[in-house]
């Protein structure tokens, strides 16, 4: 580990979130679309699909994985600085996009991971890609409906005040704080793009595809589902139900972490992933 969790969190609180990750980006063309990619390390490819708030804060987690993998972390179409054609407006579209993306990069077999909204895309992608994903790591994924029609599985982030949202999202809400005054117009533009695309892709049905749960049986990759113990966006029970719907999936809870454990507890997440990949 280049940095430990405590130090990372201290730094995050000092600097605030920066919105644009501190990894040099490159641009990859996928069927005429310019896609922003943050890539590091070498070895077996590991594709990481980011949550709706982007890749900022994931540097420690991705950096540690890059010691043993070629870690490829793109900005989804419509997020970061990636293009999106008008017709893309569902997570299914994004999953099909990643089929094209893998073709464009010439990647055959790989490890797939995704967090939250990116976990939803990853799960959908995995149902379409048998025999090519060596391991699948879903971190508090969204995307399925578990409970009844009058229960919410996923907190309505569009109906929460910012302070409530941070409290639900993080074990320590200060981790997600950013100083809007210190941000450039570029950074604010990325925030506005993320929010707009999150709404476009996940407004209704809210943060899920009613059919995805019934398709999860198709996933043939070894699968680990990770949940933050303090997650109030999706409770650990939701992640457990997700794991139960994927054949043979393991489940692991990360202490003192909310909905984005790879940001709050990168060490513990890296350990969990390393143990799973080694096993």
């Amino acid at each position: 580990m280049q940095r430990n969790t405590a130090r990372f969190n201290r730094e995050a609180k000092d600097r605030g979130m920066q919105i644009i990750p501190s990894i040099p980006p490159r641009t990859q063309t996928v069927r005429d679309q310019a896609i922003e990619i943050f890539e590091q390390g070498s070895g077996e490819p590991l594709l990481f699909l980011h949550p709706a708030r982007g890749l900022d804060g994931c540097e420690a987690f991705l950096g540690a994985l890059a010691k043993s993998h070629r870690v490829i972390a793109p900005s989804h179409p419509g997020f970061g600085r990636s293009d999106a054609p008008y017709w893309m407006n569902t997570v299914e579209d994004l999953a099909y996009f990643y089929l094209d993306f893998l073709d464009a990069l010439g990647i055959d077999r790989f490890t797939l991971s995704g967090s939250s909204f990116g976990g939803w895309i990853a799960a959908s992608l995995a149902t379409k890609l048998q025999k090519r994903i060596s391991s699948l790591v879903l971190i508090d994924p969204l995307g399925i409906k578990v409970s009844g029609r009058e229960q919410r599985d996923i907190a309505d982030v569009f109906a929460m005040k910012r302070t409530d949202l941070m409290a639900a999202m993080f074990h320590d809400p200060k981790v997600g704080a950013f100083d809007m005054k210190a941000l450039s117009d570029d950074q604010l533009t990325i925030i506005a793009r993320h929010r707009k695309s999150e709404v476009l892709f996940a407004w209704s049905p809210y943060m899920h595809d009613p059919k995805l749960k019934s398709r999860l049986h198709r996933i043939d990759a070894r699968t680990l589902v990770i949940a933050g113990a303090s997650d109030d966006i999706t409770k650990p029970e939701y992640a457990k139900a997700y794991a139960a719907a994927i054949p043979g999936a393991q489940f692991r809870e990360i202490a003192e972490a909310g909905h984005l454990p790879m940001i709050e507890q990168p060490d513990a997440c890296v350990r969990a992933v390393a143990e799973f990949l080694a096993g």
């Binding site: 569009f158 809007m180 117009d185 604010l188 533009t189 925030i191 506005a192 793009r193 929010r195 707009k196 999150e198 709404v199 476009l200």
Partner: peptide, 15 residues
């Protein structure tokens, strides 16, 4: 709500 106004307008409001 996100998306209701164009991105550039939201940036102006946040600023």
């Amino acid at each position: 709500p996100p998306g209701y106004a164009p991105v550039a307008d939201n940036v102006r409001v946040m600023r």
